[in-house]
Design a protein around this nucleic acid. Structure first.
Lengths: 203, 203
DNA sequence: CCTACCGATCGGTAGG
DNA sequence: CCTACCGATCGGTAGG
C-alpha cells in the first residue's frame, strides 16, 4: 500500500485516540471526526480499523527492534553486560519518549489484534525481551551483576520501562534525557551492577 | 446494594473477561453468556455495566490500600526505609498474585470509568504511590538508599510491580513467594539499598 | 430470571 | 472524499 500523507495522518490521530480510549473504545467515526471527514470516507485510505492498529503496532515494534539491535551490536566499548544493558534501557526509553502515543498503543493494544498478528507480536516481544534476558544472564555469570533469575529480572525491568507510557508527558517535570539517565541507573542497580564494577572486563 | 452470591459471580466472570478483552471489548451479553443467563437478565443484579467495573476497581483499590497501610504501619522492626519498602513491595505483589484478573482490571481498565470515578481512583493511586515516594525519599536522606529522584524511582518500581499482571500465571514456573522475593530484591537494589546496609539504624 | 423490544451506534459496502 | 445504506450488535428498559 502506498504511503500517503493522509495515511500517516490517520495513524497519528488513531494513535492518539487509541492511547486515550483504547482500540475498542475508539470508533471509526471518532477517527474520521478528528480528521474532519465522514466515517465512511476513511475507507478510501484504509482497509479496516484493524489495519490501522496493525500499522501502528507493527511500525512501533520495528522501531523497538531496530533500536535494540543497534544497542546490542554497536554498544560503547567495552561491550560489557553493564554497558550493553545500559544501552538497551536507553534505547527503549528513547523510543517511548519520542512518541508516547504510538508506544502506548504498542504496549497496551496488541491484545486487540487478530489472533495471527497477535501471535506474531508475541513472538517478537519475546525475542526482544530475550536480549534483556541474555545480557542479564551473561552479567550474572561474569560477575558484572549480582546473581538472580534473569527471566524475572528482565520482566521486571521491561515492564518498568513500558510503564513509562502511562505517565510520561512531553511537558512534564523531567526531560527525556533525565528520565533516561534515572531509568538506566535504576535498571543497572536492580540487577546489582555498580556494587561490583571493579570486576568489569578491561578493554 | 445487597452482596448476593450471584453478584459476586458476576464480578468474577466480568473480571476474567475484562482482563482478557478489556472493558470496551466485553459486552453485557458476553458476561451473561458466561453465566448461562440472558443478557437482559443481568440487570436484575446490576445497575449497569459501568457499575460492575466500578465494583471490581473499587474493591481492588481498597485491597491495595489496606495492604500498604498495614505494611507501612506494622512493618518488621526496625521500621527502616529498607524494611518498609520491602514490606510495601511484598504486599503489592501479594495482592496481584492473589487475584491477577481483578488486579489487571484495576491496573488497565480504570480509564474506562466515568470521569468522577476515574478522578477518585487517580487520587487514591497517587496517595498509594506517595507511600513509595516518601519511604524512598526518607531512605535517600538517611543514607539507606543511594541518592536519586524519589518520584522517578517510585514510578519505576510501581510500574514494574504492576507489570506483573501481564505475565503472572498461577501455574507458572515461579511461585508467588519466589516472585515476591525476587521483586523485593530487585526493588531494593534499584534504589541502591544493600550496598550501604551498614548505615542502617540499629534497633 | 425470561421474552420482547427500544434507539443508538458499530464496522463496513455500493456507487458515484 | 461524499451520500445513502447494510446487517449486526450495543447497553438498557418494560412488564411479567
Amino acid at each position: 500500500m502506498v504511503e500517503t500523507t493522509r495515511r500517516r495522518e490517520i495513524e497519528e490521530v488513531a494513535s492518539s485516540l487509541f492511547h486515550r480510549h483504547g482500540y475498542s473504545g475508539t470508533s471509526v467515526r471518532d477517527i474520521a471526526r478528528a480528521l474532519d471527514i465522514q466515517g465512511a470516507s476513511l475507507y478510501a485510505h484504509v482497509a479496516s480499523k484493524q489495519d490501522v492498529l496493525w500499522s501502528i503496532v507493527d511500525r512501533t515494534a520495528t522501531r523497538f527492534e531496530n533500536a535494540a539491535a543497534a544497542a546490542t551490536t554497536y554498544t560503547t566499548v567495552p561491550p560489557s553486560p553493564t554497558n550493553t544493558l545500559a544501552a538497551l534501557v536507553k534505547a527503549h526509553v528513547g523510543i517511548v519518549t519520542d512518541d508516547v502515543q504510538r508506544a502506548s498503543v504498542f504496549v497496551h493494544e496488541w491484545r486487540s489484534l487478530s489472533p495471527e498478528r497477535r501471535a506474531d507480536v508475541a513472538r517478537r516481544r519475546d525475542e526482544y525481551e530475550g536480549r534483556f534476558r541474555s545480557v542479564i544472564a551473561r552479567g550474572g555469570e561474569d560477575g558484572s551483576f549480582a546473581a538472580g533469575d534473569p527471566v524475572a529480572a528482565a520482566s521486571y525491568i521491561l515492564t518498568a520501562l513500558n510503564g513509562l507510557v502511562a505517565w510520561y508527558r512531553p511537558d512534564g517535570r523531567l526531560s527525556p534525557a533525565e528520565i533516561s539517565d534515572a531509568y538506566v541507573l535504576l535498571s543497572l542497580r536492580s540487577v546489582g551492577a555498580g556494587s561490583r564494577q571493579r570486576h568489569e572486563v578491561p578493554a
